[in-house]
């Protein structure tokens, strides 16, 4: 698959809320976005006049959504996981899944498992069909080295569903056997967490996104480089790729045009390129050329991008953003 030549916004759907997470139904093309009002905002962005449907279910920001068969599973800062029928929105299950904020919810490709990570620093693996807890994965410290609460930001399944990766605020990454819950490898990604011991005496950043390569051998980690003034998201966008079994870094992409967090990473199924979405107060979309080890394209978005899905068949990315749902053509 050739590198994309086109990378531009095609649609901008305004919302009052902050859209924080997004998933797309491959069957219907319908989009489900988790929002700051505790609701799921559902829409067909391809419609001539897209109309949103809103479903309640959470008491705070909805930061993770995943599709597993007919079920839509969402997680939020209220610590709850909510199962509902993706077609009707009817809630079938609502669990107190974590003691603190849920940061991300993902499903294995076959739809059997759901994984959630939260600031209780535990990754929990759930049976997607009946909501049964299968594994509690504990391998992240509750406190940073400076004695502040840590945060468990991201998780991702490998494409074949056998591996599950997690990464926390200070950049400690763990790869787990998804079936047994055993830790297989750990490595550190320290360059995305800025602790300022002198000027402001607190921290910013931390890795925010993870993605396995199509062959499952590499793990991409996205975030923001070191920050001078931690009042703002002013570090350069940063993506590092590791051969996770050896903990060796194979790629490093430092944004030369944009600052801010890389919130979402998506590999192309060919393994030749990688999409990165994020930003500071503005947004950025970047295409990483993995063979050439360079940033192939980097485009500005109108606002911060929190999450994205990409449909290879149409070259369409749908992006959850600050007060907007954006559609981009990347082909």
């Amino acid at each position: 698959m050739a590198l994309p030549n086109e990378c531009k916004q095609t649609k901008d759907l305004s919302r009052k809320e902050i859209l924080l997470s997004v998933v797309r139904s491959p069957a219907t093309g319908r989009i489900y976005a988790g929002a700051s009002d505790g609701k799921i905002h559902s829409v067909d962005p391809a419609a001539e006049k897209p109309e949103f449907t809103e479903w309640e279910g959470h008491g705070s920001y909805v930061t993770g959504v995943a599709l597993a068969g007919p079920s839509l599973v969402s997680g939020g800062y209220d610590g709850r996981l909510v199962w509902r029928d993706a077609a009707s929105g009817t809630i079938s299950r609502s669990l107190e899944a974590h003691a603190r904020w849920i940061r991300k919810v993902v499903a294995s490709a076959d739809g059997r498992w759901i994984a959630s990570v939260a600031d209780d620093m535990v990754c929990r693996v759930w049976d997607a069909a009946d909501g049964k807890l299968l594994h509690e994965l504990r391998g992240h410290a509750e406190r940073t080295p400076q004695h502040f609460p840590s945060m468990l930001y991201a998780c991702a399944f490998s494409p074949d569903g056998t591996r599950l990766a997690t990464v926390d605020r200070v950049g400690h990454a763990v790869v787990w056997d998804a079936a047994t819950g055993k830790s297989l490898a750990t490595f550190e990604v320290p360059g995305m967490y800025t602790w300022d011991p002198k000027q402001r005496i607190h921290a910013i950043g931390g890795p925010r996104s993870l993605a396995f390569s199509p062959d499952g051998q590499s793990l991409a980690v996205g975030g923001m480089g070191q920050v001078g003034n931690i009042d703002h998201l002013e570090g350069k966008t940063r993506v590092e790729i590791f051969r996770w079994e050896k903990g060796e870094r194979s790629h490093e992409f430092v944004g030369d045009q944009f600052k801010g967090l890389v919130e979402r990473l998506i590999y192309h199924s060919s393994g030749e390129w990688l999409l990165a979405f994020g930003g500071d107060s503005g947004g950025s979309v970047q295409v990483m050329d993995l063979a050439g080890n360079r940033i192939h394209k980097q485009e500005k978005a109108s606002t911060h991008l929190h999450d994205a899905v990409y449909d290879e068949s149409t070259g369409t990315a749908v992006i959850a953003a600050h007060n907007r749902l954006l559609v981009w053509n990347i082909a």
Partner: peptide, 21 residues
């Protein structure tokens, strides 16, 4: 003086740290 609370970016992360303290 406990500085610095000026959270123009990532207000909630900053306050999670500093308010907890």
């Amino acid at each position: 003086s406990r500085a610095w609370w000026d959270s123009h970016g990532q207000n909630f992360e900053t306050h999670l740290e500093l308010v907890s303290e």
